[in-house]
Amino acid sequence: MHVQEWLETVPAAAVYAVVGLIIGLESLGIPLPGEIVLVSAALLSSQHEGINPVILGTCATVGAVVGDSIGYAIGRRGGRPLLAWLGRKFPRHFSEGHVAAAERSFEKWGMWTVFFGRFVALLRIFAGPLAGVLRMPYWKFLIANVLGGICWAGGTTAVVYYVGVVAESWLKRFSWAGLAVAVLVGLGSMLMLKRKAKKAQAAQHGRERESEALEPVPAGE
């Protein structure tokens, strides 16, 4: 069943709860389609008066901020062993290459990685846990987390809602359009990050081989 069709069958309060919960779990570090659910719910709010876009955007923002904060706390407590465990559980999302690429982003951009990571599918999933593992100061993380959550969740809700209001008749016939755009954007960002992850992994292996080659041989051998 289409996500939007399913959302139409549940009460407004349940829509708010589902959106906040899915986005919160995704931000915590669990690979879930938070963006697809948000776009579908925002599009639904433009077609049904029972769903308030302001409440929807607020719930999405709260879910994003709280989920990321919990992910940060788990990452700070779990450290590197947590990343190794996530890599075994979700190898497509937490592979060594993906983690290495994300670490390079944190080293280069710092707290802005948390902010802009909200708009990139894979970074959105583990920006919180990875920030905790890397011991980013919490006040920096919190500022970037709140601003990123407001801009992404609130901004997405507002844009999709107003597009739906302006083009309601068109969207009724092509309700897949908004969902398709979100999926394409998500896939594009995922492919881009995978490409960067492969390059980072190759570079890391190259450095390891160089260090092994330069390692001094014991005198007795």
Rank of each mutant, 00 (worst) to 15 (best):
A102W: 02
S175Y: 13
G154D: 03
N52T: 00
N145S: 07
V133G: 07
A13H: 04
H93G: 10
L134A: 11
F90A: 01
F106N: 01
N145T: 03
E215F: 09
V146G: 06
A41I: 06
R173Q: 13
F90Y: 15
G87S: 14
R76T: 05
G20A: 14
L21V: 12
V114E: 02
G71V: 09
L193A: 11
L123A: 09
T58V: 15
L214P: 07
L171Y: 06
W176R: 11
A202L: 14
L134F: 07
E35F: 08
E35W: 04
W139M: 11
V166I: 14
E168A: 14
R173N: 15
L214R: 13
A127Q: 11
V15Y: 05
T113K: 08
E215G: 04
T9D: 15
P33H: 07
R173L: 15
P91H: 13
R124T: 04
L83R: 02
L38E: 09
D68Y: 01
R124S: 05
A219Y: 04
A17W: 09
R135C: 11
P216G: 04
S69W: 01
E221T: 05
A167I: 00
K108V: 01
R195I: 00
R77G: 05
F115Q: 00
A202C: 09
G50L: 10
V166G: 11
E96R: 12
T157Q: 04
G148I: 00
S175M: 13
I36Y: 01
R135H: 12
Y162D: 14
L191T: 09
T9P: 11
E26H: 00
L187Q: 09
L142A: 14
A12W: 08
M111V: 10
M111A: 10
H93C: 10
W152G: 00
V114D: 02
A102Y: 03
S105A: 11
E221P: 00
W109G: 08
E8L: 12
V19P: 02
Q4M: 15
E168W: 03
G97A: 02
L86F: 15
V3M: 14
P91G: 11
I23H: 05
A64E: 09
E35I: 09
E221H: 05
R77D: 05
R207M: 12
Y16L: 15
V114T: 01
Q4G: 12
V185D: 01
D68W: 03
G186H: 04
I74N: 05
S45R: 00
L214Q: 14
R92M: 14
A121L: 14
H98I: 15
V165L: 08
R135A: 06
L193W: 05
V165G: 06
A14W: 13
G79A: 07
M192R: 06
L142Y: 11
V133F: 08
H98L: 12
V99F: 04
W139T: 08
V62C: 08
E26G: 05
V65D: 02
L56G: 00
W6T: 15
L123W: 00
F90H: 03
T156E: 13
